[in-house]
Structure formats: structure tokens, C-alpha cells
């Protein structure tokens, strides 16, 4: 009888232990995806990667840590800097390990949870697998996924952080990619002056309003509000003899020659230089080009066939409007800043 009682007590103990494990730090998190009211539901829904504060923080550590590069010289943040809307430090092409340059301008990172594809040519189909390109490209971080997993598993800081975030003893590539996706999908910019105006909290100046009207008439077809992209691929007439075939590389369809993804224009003031190869250094150059610098070719977007034909004054008004898309709460958000390792 006594033995049975002891066994019973022991069983109870086991059960209670198990319960405690289940409500461990991960489920205690009250950390949520901050859905802006003016945006649709995001494309990425964290289905296989539940968002937690620990997961997000781990992603943030990783994003800023040069451990992810071959020679520990650069991190994601080297070419995606918060002050520049998570684009590079105002240089056309980015420098990877061994001082190798890529061929395309590092895109600004924001509102990625709404994006259905990634990279200038849309070759990547999911936010979780996007980092595979920069991590393993010899022009970027130059690592292999297998070696990254080995390095992280030797690192006591990350062993602890991955265990806290995902409850795993051994770090694998999936968890690394999940952590990065938790950070990058939370980079949400939705609080520019434009958003304040749309919410009725403030109003545009006359010139901003003039620019907004022109923008709606001439630009919003592709740079669709409120995310300022329609996620399509278009040839904007930069050249007629293509150095970079763009989307055709992915689809192998000549109809996609010279097409690149329409980038968002949020925080565009901070993300210069512009275009897929960073060839235009300021917004004045971009508007001048779109007005009367378009090169014709078979795949040129029909909306740009004859250029936008904007006067200098109209171009200036559009530029003034575009600066209302600058979100200082985004580029200054301490949640996104380089973490201090305690």
C-alpha cells in the first residue's frame, strides 16, 4: 500500500513537472505582430514559426552579428542599416567578404511580412529562406549553412538564446532562419507623415498635396498605396541593352527581360541611391529620368512608353510628397537597433 502511495506521489510529481515545462518562457510572452490598421493582413502568418519576444530578440542578435559571415567581418546590418531604412549606407553596390561587390543595390527592408517574393528579381518565394542568398553568396557573407550551424552550436551565447527561444538543445538551420524571419518580418514602417494625414491627424502642405495628386495620377499604378508597391516586376526603361536581365533570370521568359520588382517608396528619402543597381543618386535624378530619360525596348512598361513628362515644378512637388513617407519612428525604433550583449 505504501509503495503504491509513493508511486502515486511520484506520478503526480512527474505530471506537475511536465506542466511547468509547457508554460515555460515561450508561451508567457505577450509579444505580438503589430498589424497597422491601414494595411491588409500580412502574407507571412508565422504558421510554422510562432512569433515570440525571445525569437524576435534572437533574430535581432543574429542580424547584427558578424558571426554569420565567413571571416566574421560583416553582418546583415553591414548592408542593411536602420538609419537608411535598412538599405546600405548610400552606396550603389555592397561589399561582401573578401571585398567582393555584388551587382545589385541592397534593398531597403521594411514591411516584408506583406511581400510575396524577395530579391530584385523575385527569385525567393518565402521570407524564411531569403537569408540563404546573402548568407551563402560569395559576394556577400560567403558562408555555408552547414558551417554556420557548426559555428553557432559552438557558441555558448547562442546555445542559450536558441534554447530560450525555441526550446532546442541543438541549433539547426531551420531555427536560424526562423529567428531571422521573426526579426525581419517585424520591421514595420507605418507611421510616416503620410499615414498621419490619411488618419486625419494632420494635413499636407500645399506642395505636398500637389505632389500627392500627381503621384496618384502618375506613380501609384505601380507604387500602390498604402505599401507603395504592387509587388509586380517591371522594366522601367533604364536601358535597352541589358547588363542585367533581371526577372528573366528566374523565369527564363524573354518577356521578363530587364524587369525588376517595384520597390516600396516608404522611407525612400533615406534609401538612396536608387534603381536595381543604385545608378541614380538622388530623387531629382530619378524624377528627371522618369520624365524624359526612358529608354525604349520590347519589354518596357507601357505606362512609361513616353516618359512621365513632368515639369521641374511637378517633379519637385512629387519629391516633397515622397518625403512625407519618411518614418522617423521606424528608423529610430530602439526595438530594431543593434542590441547590446549583456
Amino acid at each position: 500500500m505504501r509503495k503504491i502511495l509513493i508511486l502515486f506521489a511520484f506520478t503526480l510529481f512527474l505530471v506537475s513537472c511536465k506542466k511547468e515545462v509547457v508554460i515555460s518562457p515561450i508561451t508567457k510572452d505577450a509579444f505580438r505582430f503589430n498589424q497597422p490598421e491601414q494595411f491588409s493582413s500580412p502574407h507571412y502568418n508565422f504558421e510554422n514559426n510562432p512569433l515570440t519576444e525571445k525569437g524576435f530578440e534572437l533574430g535581432r542578435y543574429l542580424f547584427y552579428d558578424p558571426i554569420l559571415s565567413l571571416d566574421s567581418s560583416i553582418s546583415c546590418s553591414s548592408c542593411h542599416a536602420q538609419a537608411h531604412g535598412f538599405a546600405d549606407h548610400n552606396i550603389p553596390l555592397s561589399k561582401g567578404v573578401d571585398k567582393k561587390f555584388g551587382t545589385r543595390n541592397a534593398p531597403a527592408l521594411m514591411n516584408l511580412a506583406w511581400s510575396t517574393s524577395f530579391m530584385w528579381d523575385g527569385g525567393v518565394n518565402h521570407i524564411e529562406v531569403q537569408p540563404l542568398v546573402p548568407l551563402t553568396s560569395e559576394h556577400e557573407l560567403g558562408e555555408t549553412m552547414a558551417n554556420l550551424v557548426i559555428k553557432l552550436n559552438k557558441n555558448s551565447f547562442y546555445k542559450k538564446k536558441f534554447k530560450e527561444a525555441f526550446g532546442v538543445e541543438t541549433i539547426n538551420d531551420q531555427k536560424l532562419l526562423h529567428a531571422l524571419a521573426q526579426f525581419t518580418s517585424m520591421l514595420i514602417s507605418s507611421n510616416a507623415k503620410y499615414d498621419q494625414v490619411m488618419a486625419g491627424k494632420t494635413s499636407f502642405t500645399n506642395q505636398e498635396q500637389q505632389g500627392y495628386e500627381l503621384f496618384k495620377a502618375k506613380c501609384a499604378n505601380c507604387h500602390t498605396e498604402p505599401l507603395f508597391t504592387d509587388y509586380s516586376y517591371r522594366n522601367t526603361g533604364l536601358e535597352s541593352n541589358f547588363k542585367d536581365i533581371g526577372r528573366e533570370k528566374v523565369t527564363q521568359d524573354p518577356a521578363d527581360r530587364g524587369k525588376f520588382k517595384v520597390p516600396t517608396l516608404r522611407n525612400v528619402e533615406f534609401t538612396y541611391p536608387y534603381m536595381h543597381d543604385g545608378r541614380l543618386f538622388n530623387l531629382e535624378q530619378v524624377l528627371t529620368f522618369k520624365s524624359n530619360g526612358i529608354q525604349d525596348s520590347p519589354t518596357l512598361d507601357t505606362s512609361l512608353k513616353n516618359g512621365l513628362n513632368l515639369s521641374k515644378e511637378e517633379q519637385q512637388a512629387i519629391i516633397v510628397f515622397l518625403k512625407t513617407l519618411s518614418d522617423y519612428t521606424f528608423i529610430g525604433n530602439p526595438m530594431y537597433a543593434e542590441p547590446v550583449i549583456q
Binding site: V124, N125, V129, V133, M145, N172, D173
Partner: peptide
């Protein structure tokens, strides 16, 4: 897993 070298990262 991406560590198995059986995945195209640039064209998922």
C-alpha cells in the same frame, strides 16, 4: 534542410 546542398537559394 538547407545544409544538405540540395536547394536553390536564388530561385527557391
Amino acid at each position: 534542410s538547407s545544409t544538405n546542398d540540395m536547394y536553390w537559394d536564388w530561385n527557391s
